Simulated assay, not measured.
Amino acid sequence: MKRIHEFGGGLDPFLMLDELRASADDAHIGGVPPHPHRGIQTLTYIIHGGLTHEDHLSHRSTIYPGDAQWMHTGHGMIHSEMPLTDENGLLAFQLWLNLPATEKMSTPTYRDVRHAQMPTLAVDNGQLVALGGQWQTHAGSINGPLDALAGNGGVSHLTLAAKGEIELKIAATTLCAYVFQGALNCGGETASAGELIRFSAGDSLRLTTSEGAQALLLAGEPHHEPIAHYGPFVMNTRAELDQALRDYRDGTFTQSPPTS
């Protein structure tokens, strides 16, 4: 597992990105047994292999290459995640998005999205697949089916062949690309596989590649709120973290909070 995170707010509204890899013959691939979350959303996207999700609300689903799972934890979700390999092994990503203070104690929910539900936009020697948010180029625009990502978030999967390029028309305050195959060029600089790029402000973005590349593109608007983080909980204050721990220990974690 390769972890990239910015719990201090530097990538607001994004908190963490995990890249999960295993070979096809890995006999020791592990999973994550039931555990709690509060105050975040998670988005899991599969390139190779699969992942089975189960939670306390009786959701159970397995996703495969090209599919995604989205979880809005709100005031409390307890779930497990068990990865699977196929002939290509496992390659998957899990993204955490921070919920604004007004939604941290909201009702939890879950959905999965199959690859066939995700629109694809052809670009020069490549394609852009939209998981969530709006993505626009000179060739047109597409909207991903995950339309409730925190911070007006957008996530897409860019694939470029050799000498491919894309010019996005986008003005998101937070705009990033995580390169996981090949190398991307932007503004005279190159990012190789395993590197995350944070782009400066603007209304357009041109990405090119010489030999080919794949990347996750992330766009969103920051909450500009205090971040208090402890393990699977992300709240705004230490007192709220302490309350989450008490709720989990006394068995009331998944109960809806009283209305004022």
Score class of each variant (00 low, 15 high):
Ser80Pro: 02
Thr208Val: 06
Ile46Gln: 10
Gly9Trp: 06
Ala148Gln: 14
Gln134Pro: 14
Asp25Met: 13
Asn98Tyr: 05
Ala24Ile: 03
Pro83Ala: 07
Ile166Thr: 08
Leu160Thr: 11
Gly153His: 01
Gln243Tyr: 04
Asn143Glu: 11
Thr85Met: 14
Arg38Gln: 15
Glu167Phe: 01
Asn143Met: 14
Thr173Ala: 14
Tyr45Lys: 13
Leu196Ile: 13
Thr120Lys: 15
Glu221Val: 07
Arg114Cys: 05
Gly220Lys: 12
Leu149Gly: 06
Gly76Glu: 01
Ile63Asp: 01
Leu146Met: 03
Met235Pro: 12
Ala193Lys: 08
Gly151Thr: 08
Ala122Pro: 07
Val123Asp: 09
Met16Pro: 09
Ala172Lys: 06
Leu90Ser: 10
Asn143Arg: 14
Glu54Ile: 13
Ile47Leu: 03
Thr137Leu: 00
Gln69Ser: 07
Phe93Lys: 11
Gly39Phe: 06
Gly89Met: 13
Gly31Thr: 12
Glu19Ala: 02
Trp70Leu: 05
Pro13Lys: 01
Tyr64Thr: 15
His48Met: 06
Thr259Ile: 01
Phe199Thr: 08
Lys169Asp: 09
Asp112Asn: 00
Val113Asp: 04
Thr159Glu: 05
Met16Phe: 05
Pro65Ile: 00
Pro100Trp: 03
Ala24Gln: 06
Glu211Met: 14
Arg246Trp: 12
Gly31Arg: 02
Gly66Thr: 00
Leu51Ser: 12
Leu217Tyr: 03
Gly50Met: 00
Pro100Ser: 14
Asn185Cys: 05
Gly231Thr: 11
Asp67Glu: 00
Ile4His: 13
Ser256His: 04
Leu149Lys: 04
Ser256Pro: 01
Glu54Val: 07
Thr254Asn: 00
Ser204Phe: 10
Gly76Tyr: 09
Asn143Gln: 14
Leu217Ser: 03
Ser80Gln: 09
Leu207Cys: 02
Thr137Gly: 02
Trp96Asn: 07
Leu121Glu: 05
Leu121Phe: 00
Leu205Ser: 00
Thr120Arg: 15
Ala219Asp: 00
Asn88Trp: 02
Ala22Met: 12
His28Gly: 03
Cys186Gln: 11
Phe199Tyr: 08
Gly187Ala: 14
His56Trp: 06
Ala122Glu: 12
Asp55Leu: 09
Ser256Asp: 09
Leu158Ala: 14
Ile166Leu: 06
Gln134Ala: 15
Tyr64Glu: 15
Tyr178Gln: 14
Glu195Ile: 14
Gly188Ala: 04
Met105Phe: 09
Thr209Gln: 04
Gly50Ser: 05
